[in-house]
Design a protein around this nucleic acid. Sequence first.
DNA 1: GTATAAAGTTAGATTAATCTAACAAAATTT
DNA 2: AAATTTTGTTAGATTAATCTAACTTTATAC
Lengths: 220, 220
Amino acid sequence: MNNSLTEENYLKALFNIASKTGEVNVAELSKSLGIKMPTVTSMMKRLAEKKLVHYESYKPLRLTEKGKKEAGLIIRKHRLTEMFLVEKMKMGWEDVHDIAEQIEHIQSPVFFEKMDEMLDYPKVDPHGSPIPDANGKVVWKDYNKLSDCQAGETVKLAAVINTSSEFLKFLNTREMHLGVKIKIKLIEPFDKSIVVSYGKRSAEVLSNVACERLLVEKVK
Amino acid sequence: MNNSLTEENYLKALFNIASKTGEVNVAELSKSLGIKMPTVTSMMKRLAEKKLVHYESYKPLRLTEKGKKEAGLIIRKHRLTEMFLVEKMKMGWEDVHDIAEQIEHIQSPVFFEKMDEMLDYPKVDPHGSPIPDANGKVVWKDYNKLSDCQAGETVKLAAVINTSSEFLKFLNTREMHLGVKIKIKLIEPFDKSIVVSYGKRSAEVLSNVACERLLVEKVK
DNA sequence: GTATAAAGTTAGATTAATCTAACAAAATTT
DNA sequence: AAATTTTGTTAGATTAATCTAACTTTATAC
């Protein structure tokens, strides 16, 4: 539990990629961090020494339990910070990522405990991602992609994935916030774009690309 | 305005030492940072390249105007953070230094503007030190050390210097907070310890060592 | 099932930040 | 003013984190 800032960034990337695609290979990690493959390989050896990663030449990378825990705790700090910035400091959800990326490395349990307390122990961050618990454990509810839903269904927006600032600004301009109830009016077979109604908007068109990034839960 | 974390720490130390003793020599800076002299010398050459420090072999070190500004801005972030931690996150003044030491390096103007706004543009930090303005300029009011005052005077505690956690806890146990009105009852010529009354305390003894760390302003 | 491409590794160089050992300059003491 | 101490610098080594170039292994494609 005494890793450099750089090591922390590798752990976090490993955790995030693994949560999407299960396994992690060097090329992917390299691309995701913007760091060349030989550098990644040598860092993997270091993290293996520290028992944070299972590493074998030419095999996919896997975090150890210890590695998962430490990565989870960094992500916990990241997501708590994002929530704090939005809820307490009144920033937009499109503006918090870069700041949280820095604050997640602050070494001070008390600081994050205070945040947690002030936020009344939130379960999710401003983008709907679950905040790992104090042991670094994180559980995603079984949301569906909006792009996988059927015409006629009514769903609630639960989370957004791949939270680029541009995408979040796009959602802002359409008043598409977490929690809105969305009625799927029709799905265009040609390009999978859909027409939805929600809030005051009765016929908003969303591309398939957008719908793949919107996680929703069924509404009875 | 694009310095490494390490460079920022050297700038800050230069600024702080210079504000006390006027000039800065390598040995002092080395001691204050806990870094050996040859390392300091080579860093001074780097900072001189970047026009942040005036450096000539065997001469005392001086920050350039640019260096003063950048150092001032880091100290601004530090002191704003301390104020935020005390006022908004309800931490004790003895617990905020180490956290502020980390957060002062966060690169995000917006983050600190929000803090400043939430705190309603404070002029001093929780220890009474002035917060540099947005140009890094800082002005100390002309406070006196309590140790330089005379028996019979009444003064107000304005700031504490050399804010070690132990000293601040010592003050806590004596309910000695910024703003309290202190009456100096007598000064012991032998060891310069003094007897004061303030708040509910009618005869508290303070050593000269303690009094040298308490800055006060005259009360009419 | 060989050839090509993609992925991964090794070797060696670079930069930032640090150190120790040895030397040089400045300040202090006697 | 010479000797000693303190202060400061140079030289060279070390570690973390990165790179490029060259090589090897695994996967993919014909």
